[in-house]
């Protein structure tokens, strides 16, 4: 019988359910191949992230809760999930760094191919995905006789609308054996301490390129971002130059994002960068160079010096009473 297992983004029970998990549930719903179970890995899961416990359309929760599962290593998780994975016709994970690390490992164990970064579901075994940094799309089919494994391209999906089911789904806690070999250990995480929205899920993003010239100048964007309640992004050139931390990089090898509004300052628009914003709602480009490739994809373009435009923009927002 067909059934879908969604492996949730690793988190504890304190924070609300991750948006990437809700997007993966949207893909599960679209596939519609049978009941949906959710598997949880983490530490501090004595209660599930809200409102997972009462979410409509979930048959069952598997919970692996153990201190060794803080930022769980893929080798440990794949040992734990082991044969349980074979009970499912479909295994789905969000295309986060957790999913992109873990699901190929499970695919290796199960001897099944994996469909990475699904942008559209065309049938229970047929999917659309991008290659060459999204410059070409392909329709792929998973052959019969093997489970369907896929990661979800987050920028292409909306989270499911959270609805309460008729009754909470049963929760099965699975003990992590003390003897399980641990060959990979989490040491630490250096987080960008920011009160701003998360780049991956922000509705607005203010982004800067190498033209900003320094880390100090890059901070100019912060004022505007705070004003618009936007996340901050950066081009690869700006990250490589040390103006912005790597987790702000937007593009093929950084984050693929789909905000409603993307404001690009001093970003020329290398193809790898444009790949990261293809699904944005409105793209605004501000650049001194009228020939910059970013203008070819921008919905609104302004040729000008960003060091003049940003203060003007803040003043104009004031004048029109926006973002206060």
């Amino acid at each position: 019988m067909d059934a879908i297992l969604v492996i949730a983004e690793a988190q504890d029970g304190q924070a609300p359910i991750a948006e990437s998990t809700l997007k993966t549930l949207a893909v599960a719903r679209k596939i519609g191949a049978g009941p949906v179970d959710l598997a949880w890995f983490g530490a501090g899961l004595d209660r599930l992230p809200e409102p997972a416990g009462t979410l409509n359309g979930i048959r069952k929760h598997w919970v692996f809760d153990d201190p060794r599962l803080v930022h769980p290593p893929a080798s440990l998780v794949s040992r734990l999930i082991g044969s349980r994975a074979r009970e499912y016709s479909h295994l789905l994970m969000p295309g986060t760094s957790f999913g992109r690390d873990l699901l190929p490992r499970l695919a290796g164990l199960l001897g099944a191919p994996l469909v990475s970064d699904v942008l559209e579901v065309l049938g229970p075994r047929r999917f659309k995905r991008g290659i060459y940094a999204g410059n070409i799309h392909t329709v792929v089919r998973v052959p019969d006789g093997v489970p369907v494994l896929l990661t979800v391209r987050l920028a292409s999906w909306r989270p499911i609308v959270v609805e309460e089911g008729p009754a909470p789904a049963p929760v099965e806690k699975i003990a992590v054996p003390g003897t399980i070999p641990v060959d990979a250990r989490f040491v630490g995480l250096e987080v960008d301490q920011s009160a701003r929205p998360d780049l991956q899920s922000a509705r607005r993003v203010v982004s800067g390129g190498r033209s900003l010239g320094s880390r100090e100048n890059f901070a100019l964007l912060e004022k505007l971002a705070d004003r618009l309640n936007a996340a901050i992004g950066a081009s690869r050139a700006a990250v490589d130059a040390g103006y912005a931390p790597n987790d702000l990089q937007v593009g093929q090898t950084g984050k693929i994002i789909a905000p409603e509004l993307y404001l690009a300052f001093g970003i020329s628009g290398a193809i790898q960068h444009l790949t990261g914003i293809r699904d944005a709602g409105t793209i605004v480009a501000v650049n001194k160079d009228p020939e910059a490739p970013i203008f070819k994809v921008a919905d609104l373009g302004l040729v000008g010096d960003l060091f003049a435009v940003i203060p003007d923009l803040l003043a104009e927002l004031d004048r029109q009473g926006i973002g206060r």
């Binding site: 990979a184 250990r185 995480l189 250096e190 991956q200 790597n246 987790d247």
Partner: peptide, 11 residues
């Protein structure tokens, strides 16, 4: 290089 920053692991 993970989604939320830089993670250090030992393998």
């Amino acid at each position: 290089e993970v989604d939320h920053g830089l993670e250090t692991v030992e393998v």
